[in-house]
Amino acid sequence: MSEDHTRVQEFFGVRAADWDRKFPGDGPAFAAAVAAIGLRPGDRVLDAGCGTGRALPELRAAVGPSGTVLGADLTPEMLAEAAQAGRRAAGALLLADATRLPLRDGCLDAVFAAGLIAHLPDPQVSLRELARVVRSGGRLALFHPIGRAALAARQGRELTDDDMRAEHNLRPLLSASGWEPTSYADEEHRFLALAVRRP
């Protein structure tokens, strides 16, 4: 495992037990973001970097009992919290790295990723891997329950032009990774970038 992966596991591992309690009001933002993907009954969707699985019940509701919901995360403690919260009932939990998913090419209709992109050591490699497992015309949602400026303020840092999630940086990154960006919203109470898998 790389040093970057170890850092991510250490960061989230010690925070897993308190994660849901720390952000109790995020539910409506997650629900709205899942709704924006346009999932249909029977769809197959991955929550990449699912953490404690907060999106899994919403994803399950969107795809129905005939759909497939997977939650993948690099941190065992986060997946343990997801299971303890009963979210395994909404989707299968996988201990997996977003740069090497144990999934077939084109097997998914969509990927939902909350807060993932900021923690990727090589975003382009990971976005390409997400594109690999999504069928042509499938969808990607990059989400955060607060916008970039609010997140920077929460973390006590300045918002800079080199922020990877800034539209002028993210659009070319998505385009170079097999995705066609379709919408971008960076507001106080949400960040949501949507893209479609190119043929």
Rank of each mutant, 00 (worst) to 15 (best):
M1S: 15
M1A: 13
D4G: 14
T6D: 11
Q9S: 06
E10F: 06
E10W: 01
E10I: 01
E10Q: 07
F11A: 10
F12V: 12
V14F: 00
V14H: 11
V14I: 08
R15H: 11
R15L: 13
A16I: 08
A16S: 12
A17C: 08
D18S: 15
D20K: 03
K22I: 02
K22G: 13
P24G: 04
G25Q: 08
D26Y: 02
D26I: 12
D26S: 13
A29G: 10
A29F: 03
A32R: 15
A32L: 10
V34F: 07
V34L: 08
A35N: 11
L39H: 06
P41L: 08
G42N: 10
R44N: 13
V45Y: 05
L46N: 10
L46Q: 04
L46V: 10
D47S: 09
D47G: 09
G49H: 06
G49D: 14
C50G: 09
T52P: 04
G53V: 02
A55Y: 04
P57I: 03
E58N: 06
L59I: 09
R60H: 07
A61I: 01
A61T: 11
G64V: 09
T68R: 15
V69T: 12
V69W: 07
L74N: 11
L74Q: 14
T75R: 08
P76R: 05
M78D: 13
M78L: 13
A80F: 05
A80E: 15
E81F: 04
A82V: 09
A83H: 08
A83F: 02
A83Q: 13
Q84T: 13
Q84R: 15
A85H: 12
A85V: 04
R87V: 07
R87A: 05
A90S: 15
G91D: 10
G91W: 06
G91I: 07
A92R: 11
L93Y: 08
L94G: 12
D97V: 09
D97Y: 02
T99Q: 14
T99R: 08
R104Q: 13
R104I: 01
D105A: 13
C107G: 15
C107D: 08
V111H: 07
V111Q: 09
F112Y: 14
A113Q: 12
A113F: 10
G115L: 08
G115N: 12
D122N: 15
D122Q: 07
D122I: 05
P123N: 01
Q124L: 03
Q124H: 03
L127P: 09
R128C: 03
E129H: 04
L130C: 04
A131M: 04
A131W: 00
G137E: 00
G138T: 05
R139I: 00
R139E: 02
F143A: 13
P145T: 01
P145V: 05
P145A: 00
I146G: 00
L151E: 00
R154T: 03
Q155S: 00
G156N: 02
R157V: 10
T160V: 05
D161V: 01
D163G: 00
M164I: 11
R165V: 09
A166C: 07
A166V: 04
L170K: 03
R171H: 02
L174M: 09
S175K: 03
S175A: 14
S175L: 12
A176S: 15
A176P: 05
S177P: 06
S177Q: 03
E180K: 07
P181Y: 05
S183V: 11
D186V: 01
E187R: 14
H189Q: 14
R190Q: 14
F191N: 11
L192I: 14
V196I: 13
V196G: 04
R198N: 13
P199F: 06
P199E: 11
